[in-house]
């Protein structure tokens, strides 16, 4: 979820830093699932990297933002793959 709606990459994602913001985002996700806009929305832990871009802390979500670690030509990472 980005500023203007759902986005396909994580780097423009909205960030919740307080418990209230978390609840609000969670509800937004649940609503969008009911409305059939997305299939599975959940919050993940992140840190901001040197470009102030959010990056997941868990290797599972990191994998999601990239693609299979054994096929660098597939998934979202494929765009930067040569």
């Amino acid at each position: 979820m980005g500023e203007t709606g759902w986005v396909k990459t994580h780097n423009k994602a909205k960030i919740a830093s307080t418990a209230d913001e978390q609840i609000a985002l969670d509800e937004l996700g649940a609503k969008s699932m009911t409305a059939n806009e997305v299939v599975d929305a959940y919050l993940i832990d992140i840190v901001l990297d040197q470009h102030n871009t959010p990056q997941p802390t868990h290797y599972r979500e990191l994998m999601r933002t990239k693609g299979p670690s054994i096929r660098l030509d597939l998934g979202k990472q494929a765009e930067n793959h040569t």
Binding site: Y59, P68, S69, I70
Partner: peptide
């Protein structure tokens, strides 16, 4: 494993490799 599977707790394929 975790290279594809949403239930995974860890990767399998790189270990096999």
């Amino acid at each position: 494993g975790m290279d594809y599977c949403s239930l995974a707790t860890a990767r399998s394929i790189p270990i096999a490799q």
